Amino acid sequence: MPKRYGVKEKDQVVSHIINLVLTGKLRSGDRVDRNEIAHELGLSRVPIQEAVVQLEHDGILSTRYHRGAFVERFDESVVLEHHELHGMLLGIASARAATDPRPHVLSQLDSLTDFMRANRESRAFHEAAWQYRQTINEEYAGPRLLAEIRASQSFMPRSFWVTYLNNHDEMLPFYEAETNSIRGRDPDGARAACAGRAEAMGRIMVAELIRRGVLSPSRLAREPSVAL
């Protein structure tokens, strides 16, 4: 596989390993073959070790002395937990925005919400949603919170969400609620909108992984999601 220029080698390895997990090529308890990854990506062992350290920090891999790196438990509850944590972390920044809604931020959020409302095309909607999150996070999240938010995005592959056809109908109400909460100086409402959106995303991702045969159906998958 050719190198992806402009992308850090460590990040390339992280994405590769997560893709192996999300496609079922690596499953809970499987050992990560570092030599095979080095060969496939055309990289040295250094970025692979850096990626393993990050993925262990993120709770996706665990290392065992003299035995290597292994995939941690990966099941439906783990996917939902990653999304739940993501929603909580985003909610911290969003609640700060609601406590101190700065005019230039409100203007940008209003414009992006209007754009998402008017655009049903999945890629355009996702790009606007990404800008929406960046607007809040860059203004209200410090370095530590930003790092934790990035870590919590592991099981939210961009390649899936830019092609998910129901982005507009299922996600727009959460962004509208969040914008209204920030404008209305309602931090609890802003947190709830982030949590609700993350929960919905988690259940959508679980359903997709079950469809792919990566996960098996369980009681959690049959429970109805909570509407905003």
Rank of each mutant, 00 (worst) to 15 (best):
P157L: 10
P101E: 00
P157E: 02
D110L: 15
A98K: 00
F125A: 12
S154K: 13
H104L: 14
L85K: 08
E121I: 15
P103V: 08
I136W: 03
A97I: 15
P143V: 12
V79K: 02
G142F: 01
R96N: 07
L145P: 01
A147S: 14
P143D: 03
Y132R: 02
S111Q: 04
S107D: 14
H104D: 09
S111N: 07
H83W: 02
F125N: 02
P103T: 11
W130P: 00
G142V: 15
H82A: 03
E84M: 11
R133I: 05
E148S: 12
E121H: 07
P103S: 12
A98H: 04
S94A: 15
A147R: 07
L109D: 04
H104W: 08
M88V: 12
L106E: 11
Q131C: 09
E139Y: 11
A128G: 01
L145C: 06
R102F: 12
E148A: 15
L145K: 01
A93Y: 03
R150V: 14
E81V: 14
F125K: 01
P157V: 13
A128E: 00
Y140E: 05
R102N: 02
R120Q: 07
Q134R: 01
A118T: 08
S159G: 12
E121S: 13
F125H: 06
P157A: 13
P143Q: 07
P101D: 02
R117Q: 13
L146K: 06
M88G: 04
R117W: 07
F115G: 01
A95N: 13
D100Y: 14
S152A: 14
Q134G: 05
T99C: 12
F115S: 10
A124Q: 03
R96G: 11
H104T: 03
V79F: 04
D114Q: 05
H104V: 15
Q108E: 10
D100K: 05
F115V: 10
I92N: 06
T113H: 07
E138H: 09
R150M: 08
S94W: 06
Y132C: 05
G87F: 00
N137A: 14
A95G: 11
D100G: 03
A118G: 06
L145N: 04
A124I: 15
T113D: 02
A97H: 00
Q131R: 08
P143M: 14
A93D: 01
S152T: 10
P157C: 15
Q134Y: 02
R158Y: 13
E127Y: 02
A93L: 05
I136Q: 09
L112W: 03
D114M: 06
N137Q: 07
A97G: 13
S94K: 05
L90M: 09
E121F: 12
L80F: 06
S152I: 10
A147F: 04
A129P: 01
L146N: 06
L109A: 15
Q134A: 11
A124E: 08
R144M: 09
E127P: 03
L112D: 00
E138C: 06
R96A: 14
Y132G: 00
L145V: 13
